[in-house]
Simulated scan of single mutants.
Amino acid sequence: MTSSIAQHINCEPQMEGRIFNMQRYSLNDGTGIRTVVFLKGCPLACPWCANPESRSHKVEYVIREAKCIHCDICPKTVEDCPSGAYERIGTDMTVDEVMKELKKDAVFYFTSNGGVTISGGEVLAQAPFAIELLKRLKAIGIRTAIETTGFGSRTQLLKMAALCDEVLYDFKIMDAAKAKEIIGIDLELVLRNFKAVVSSGVKVIPRIPLIPGYTMTISNLEKILAFLKPFELKELHLLPFHQFGASKYETLKMEYKLTNTKVPSVSEVEAYKKYCESEGYNVVVGG
Rank of each mutant, 00 (worst) to 15 (best):
R192H: 14
G84M: 06
S54C: 01
E270V: 00
L210Y: 07
P209N: 10
E122F: 11
S3I: 11
Y275N: 01
E277L: 06
H237A: 08
I5Y: 13
T94I: 05
A66S: 15
G17E: 11
G201C: 03
N282V: 04
F151G: 02
A66N: 14
I69A: 14
H8P: 00
K248D: 13
E101C: 03
A130W: 13
F110V: 01
D29A: 02
L102K: 03
K234A: 13
V62E: 03
Y272F: 15
E277G: 04
L210G: 05
R154W: 00
A45E: 10
V269T: 14
V78M: 11
M254R: 14
F129P: 06
V36K: 09
H242A: 03
F110T: 13
Q7P: 00
Y109T: 02
V202S: 06
E147W: 11
I208V: 15
E132K: 15
N260D: 15
E166R: 12
D105A: 01
L102S: 05
L27E: 00
N193D: 10
K172D: 04
V36G: 07
A196D: 15
E12C: 03
M254G: 02
I173N: 02
T259H: 10
Q7L: 13
E147H: 12
C42P: 02
G41R: 04
I183A: 07
E279N: 10
G121V: 00
F108A: 11
K67P: 00
S247L: 08
L157Y: 03
C164V: 07
D165H: 13
I173M: 12
I208T: 13
K178V: 04
E232V: 01
K257L: 10
K104C: 05
H237N: 14
D170W: 05
D175P: 05
S199N: 15
I146L: 10
A177P: 00
R154E: 13
G245Q: 02
F244W: 13
L158V: 08
A6Q: 15
D72N: 15
T77I: 00
N220F: 05
H242C: 02
E147D: 15
L158G: 13
L44S: 09
S54D: 03
I19E: 08
A139P: 01
I208S: 04
V285D: 09
P75E: 07
